[in-house]
Design a binder for these strands. Structure first.
Lengths: 317, 317
DNA sequence: CTGAAAGCGCTTACAG
DNA sequence: CTGAAAGCGCTTACAG
C-alpha cells in the first residue's frame, strides 16, 4: 500500500502519507529488499581508466538518485583479470542489485550482459554505438565527434593528419578512428598508413606513439588523439622536441577532460557530457522515461561536440 | 555458527565449511543485514574536489574489501549545501552502514562525527592531524610534507618564496601552510606577507592568485602551491607571462596527482599514498589490525614524501 | 477496500 | 555441543 498499490482510496493514501511525513518514517531498505527479493542499490560497473570520467559518471548517477532511498555501489574491474567474469557474477548474484549501469568497455561485453539477463538484473549500457534495445542504451556516437575533429583539422588546411587510436578492446577506439577516416575521405585528404597508429588511451602510450609519429619525415602537421590523455602525451613529446603547438603542430583530443584546460596551450577537444549521461542512464533504469519527466532525459542519443581552443591552427607553410 | 562462533567443534566447522564451498553457497547480505541490524556496506563520504583523489581512495578501499561480501557505497556531498547534515543523517540512518570512511574536509567536521556516534556507526577518519583516537584515524601529516617542500626550495637558494594555501575550511590547508612557514623560519628565510596567499584548491584559484603573485615587484622566484591543481594554475600564468619554469620560477605542488606528470616541465610535488590510505582505513574499520595481518596496514601515520622533478631549480641570478 | 497471516533468508538466544 | 523457534522490518497474497 505504501508502494502505491492502486487498490486504496485516494483519501486514505493521503492521510497515511501525511502521517508518514510527520513521523519522518523511512522504511528500512534491507527489510524491503529482502521482501522484494531485490535490493535498493544501483551498481556502477566500469573499467574506464580515466578518473575524471569515473567521477563524473558517478555524479550523474547520484544526481538522478537524489531524493530516493537508493544507494550507489561502485564496482571497478579489470577485463584482463582471469577472474573478471566470476567476480562479477558473484557480485551480481549476491547483491541482487536493483539495476546496473555499464560503461565502456565493460558495456560492450556481451558475456557480461548475458549474465545480467540470467539473473534478471536490469541494466543500462553506455556505449559508442547501439548495441541493444534503445531502452537499455545511452549511445554516445563517438564517430560523429571524431568526424568533427577531423573536419576541423582538414578545414584549417592540414594534409598530413595523424591519428592515435585507443586500444582495439574499446569499441570507442574503432568508432573514433572510423569517424576520423570518413571525414578525411570526405574532405579528400589522404591518410598515410604510417600516420594511423594505435595507442591504448593512456598518457604513456600517447608519449610512445607521438615519439614515433614526430620522428617521421615528413612529420604530421596535426595529430588527432583518441582521448585527452594521449593528447597530453603528444604535448609532452612536442615540448621535448621544441615543437610549438599550434604553430608547428596542431593537436586535438577527445573527452574534454580537466586535463584539456591544464595543458599549454589549452587543448581543442571533443566533449561528451559524461555527467548528464550518468543521469540519463539512471533515469532509464528507473523507467522514468515513459512518464512525464524532464524531456532532456528522454534521449538515447548523445551528440559529442568539438570544443575549439588554442591547440589547433593552420599548418606551417 | 557460520560466523565463527567459538562453541562448535573444530571438526564440525571444517565439515560444514567444506560443504559450503562445494555448493558455492553465498549468504544473502540483505537477510544477514536484517538479522544483524547492520548492513554489509561500507560508506565513503567525501567532498574532496579532486577526481584523482576520489578514485584512488575508492580503489584503496576496494582493495581491502576484495574477497569479502561487503560493498562500497559512495556518498559525495557539499558542505556548503544547506541540507548537508540532514542528507547525511538520513543516509546513515537508513543504510545502517557497517562503517564509514571519511576523507577531508568532511572528516574534520565534528558534527558529522557526533552524528555517526549517535547512530553507533563505526568510522575511520582520514585527516592531516590526529583528531580522534588512533584506532579511528589515518593521519597524513601534511605539515611534514610541506616542510620538505619548503626546505627543498630554500636549499636551492630561493629567498623569495610564495605560498598559495587551500581554503581555510580544509584543515590540510592550515597544516601545509604551517609546515611551509616552519621550514622557512628554520632556514632563516623571511616570508613576506604579500607572498602568503589564499586559494581554494581549484585550478582557477591557482590562476587568479598566481596572476597577483607574479605581478608583484620583485616577484617570487618560487611558489609552493597547496596542491597540484593550483600548481597547474601557476604554470598556466607563467606560460602566459613568458616565464620559463624552472629557470625563472620554481614551482612545487602537493598530491603528486596525475596532473603533475602532464605538466611541462614535470612538477615537483609532495606525494601522499592515497590508495594505500584507503586500504589502511578500511582495514582499521574491519578491526583487522589487532590480528596478524600484513604489517603495513598497522600504520596510523602516513608520511608524505617530496618527489623532486623538473619544475624546481636554483633561482635566477 | 482493509487487516491479519505468511514469508523473504538470515541470526541469535534458548531449550534439549 | 546441536536443533528448532522466534525475530529482524518489510511485502505480498489472502481472507474478511
Amino acid at each position: 500500500m505504501i508502494n502505491d498499490s492502486p487498490f486504496v482510496k485516494e483519501e486514505t493514501r493521503l492521510k497515511v502519507n501525511a502521517i508518514i511525513r510527520e513521523v519522518g518514517f523511512e522504511p528500512d531498505p534491507q527489510a524491503r529488499g529482502l521482501a522484494f527479493r531485490r535490493s535498493f542499490l544501483i551498481g556502477m560497473i566500469y573499467d574506464n581508466p580515466t578518473p575524471q570520467y569515473v567521477v563524473n559518471m558517478q555524479q550523474g548517477i547520484l544526481d538522478a538518485m537524489r531524493g530516493t532511498s537508493y544507494g550507489l555501489l561502485v564496482h571497478p574491474c579489470e577485463r584482463s583479470s582471469l577472474t573478471y567474469l566470476a567476480d562479477l557474477r558473484s557480485f551480481i548474484e549476491r547483491q541482487k542489485l536493483f539495476g546496473v549501469i555499464l560503461t565502456p568497455s565493460i558495456s560492450e561485453d556481451e558475456r557480461m550482459v548475458k549474465m545480467l539477463r540470467e539473473f534478471e538484473c536490469p541494466y543500462v549500457r553506455v556505449a559508442s554505438v547501439m548495441l541493444d534495445k534503445p531502452s537499455s542504451m545511452v549511445v554516445t556516437h563517438d564517430a560523429d565527434g571524431a568526424m568533427e575533429a577531423a573536419q576541423h583539422l582538414a578545414d584549417l588546411g592540414h594534409e598530413r593528419i595523424a591519428h592515435i587510436s585507443g586500444p582495439p578492446s574499446f569499441r570507442s577506439a574503432h568508432e573514433r578512428r572510423r569517424g576520423f577516416r570518413e571525414a578525411l575521405a570526405q574532405r579528400g585528404v589522404k591518410l598515410r598508413p604510417s600516420f594511423d597508429r594505435e595507442g591504448d588511451y593512456t598518457f604513456d602510450s600517447g608519449i610512445a606513439v607521438a615519439r614515433e609519429l614526430l620522428a617521421l619525415k615528413p612529420r604530421p602537421t596535426a595529430i588527432f588523439a583518441g582521448n585527452d590523455e594521449m593528447a597530453a602525451g603528444v604535448f609532452k613529446v612536442a615540448h621535448e622536441l621544441g615543437l610549438e603547438i599550434p604553430r608547428d603542430l596542431s593537436v586535438v583530443g577527445f573527452d574534454d577532460s580537466a586535463t584539456a584546460l591544464r595543458l599549454w596551450p589549452v587543448l581543442t577537444s571533443v566533449r561528451l557530457p559524461v555527467r548528464d549521461m550518468g543521469t540519463i542512464a539512471t533515469d532509464k533504469l528507473f523507467g522514468r522515461l515513459s512518464k512525464k519527466n524532464s524531456p532532456v532525459s528522454e534521449e538515447t542519443d548523445i551528440i559529442p561536440k568539438l570544443i575549439i581552443r588554442e591547440s589547433t591552427a593552420a599548418p606551417p607553410k
